[in-house]
């Protein structure tokens, strides 16, 4: 059996990586299957649930809707690379402190989307905006109540941190 593959090279969580994969490979499968970064999840087939959200070149995107070729040469951040070793990003900490997760499956995507949300909106976030901006992420456990709370809490923390800089 032959599988036609090509080499793709990208930066993932600050490290240069490359892999030989089929052109039909999606970024999420490269991350999970080839790089062992299983924190990025697949929850739907239709680019809607957002469990696969990662950052490509600083923007939150759905890695289930990106071919590896499109990501070739890009800088990708996954949930595993959001904070340094044994550190938590303020968004991660806020999700824990506010019980913003239950089963944990949608959580990495939620956190990656939320970090991007705060990047785009800064401290101007309010509940209505957060709810609108979570359009691309589905959670079945939390009823969103504590996710919204977590994002608002983290936005405050991130604002204070950047003001302190």
């Amino acid at each position: 059996m032959t599988i036609v593959t090509r080499k793709v090279s990208l930066t993932v969580n600050g490290k240069a990586v490359s892999a030989d994969v089929e052109d039909r490979t999606l970024l999420v499968h490269l991350l999970r299957d080839n790089l062992g970064l299983t924190g990025t999840h697949v929850g739907c087939d239709t680019s809607q649930c957002g469990a696969c959200t990662v950052h490509i070149d600083g923007r939150a995107v759905k890695s289930c809707t990106v071919l590896v070729g499109q990501a070739d040469g890009s800088n990708v951040t996954t949930i595993e690379g959001l904070a340094g070793h044994n550190e938590l990003h303020p968004m991660q900490a806020a999700f824990r402190d506010n019980h913003g997760l239950q089963c944990g499956y949608c959580t990495p995507g939620m956190i990656m989307a939320a970090v991007d949300m705060v990047r785009r909106h800064g401290g101007k976030l309010d509940e209505a905006t957060v709810r609108q901006e979570l359009e691309g992420n589905i959670c079945r456990c939390t009823g969103y109540h504590n996710i919204v709370k977590s994002v608002l809490d983290a936005a405050g923390r991130m604002e204070m941190a950047s003001a302190a800089e």
């Binding site: 996954t78 959001l82 999700f95 019980h99 990495p108």
Partner: peptide, 21 residues
């Protein structure tokens, strides 16, 4: 009490069936 299990989930270290190879 904040949940003991959360750290693995918020850092992408949860281990679901499809993560097992």
């Amino acid at each position: 009490l904040a949940r003991k299990e959360d750290k693995r989930f918020i850092t992408g270290k949860g281990r679901y069936v499809d993560d097992v190879r």
